[in-house]
Design a binder for these strands. Structure first.
Length: 137
DNA sequence: GCCAACGTTGGC
DNA sequence: GCCAACGTTGGC
């Protein structure tokens, strides 16, 4: 099973809102590389939920519940979205500072390509995030 | 507010 | 098809 990291600005769509709604269509991705990643997602894949800008931390987890389909917010027909469901909020969010300071996490795509809003996460990175998150899931 | 990274656009 | 100019994202 694969793992991905998805970004959201906390003042636009925070994890708490996904928790309240249960699941949502992950629309609005308009980057070719991110689209490749969306298309590669399988139902049940893990998603790390990252708050950009105001948050700058990995704050929880979600999961893929529907694979890529045409993004209803896109009129050109060239972009896709997936459906994601809430899974958890970490007791201990992992800040970007902590990510960069950690010898395992500093190699994450999140750091390497900071503008990419949907990026892959390697298994050791997921393991490390979960260890640091204090989440007993 | 600034700047680096990177994607897109348009002239040639 | 190249590349300069410009726009956007996101960290600082």
């Amino acid at each position: 099973m694969a793992c991905w990291l998805i970004k959201s600005e906390p003042d636009v769509y925070p994890l708490a809102q996904l928790e309240a709604e249960g699941q949502t269509a992950w629309t609005g991705v308009r980057n070719p590389t991110a689209r490749i990643n969306l298309r590669a997602m399988q139902v049940g894949d893990d998603l790390l939920y990252y708050h950009s800008n105001l948050g700058k931390a990995i704050v929880g987890m979600a999961t893929v519940v529907r694979t890529a389909y045409p993004d209803p917010t896109d009129e050109t027909g060239q972009w896709v979205c997936v459906d994601v469901a809430y899974r958890a909020t970490f007791p201990q969010p992992i800040t970007l500072t902590a990510v960069k300071a950690d010898h395992v996490l500093q190699g994450m795509e999140l750091v390497r390509q900071s503008r990419l809003s949907v990026c892959p996460v390697r298994q050791p990175e997921l393991d490390r995030v979960l260890a640091l998150s204090a989440w007993q899931g």
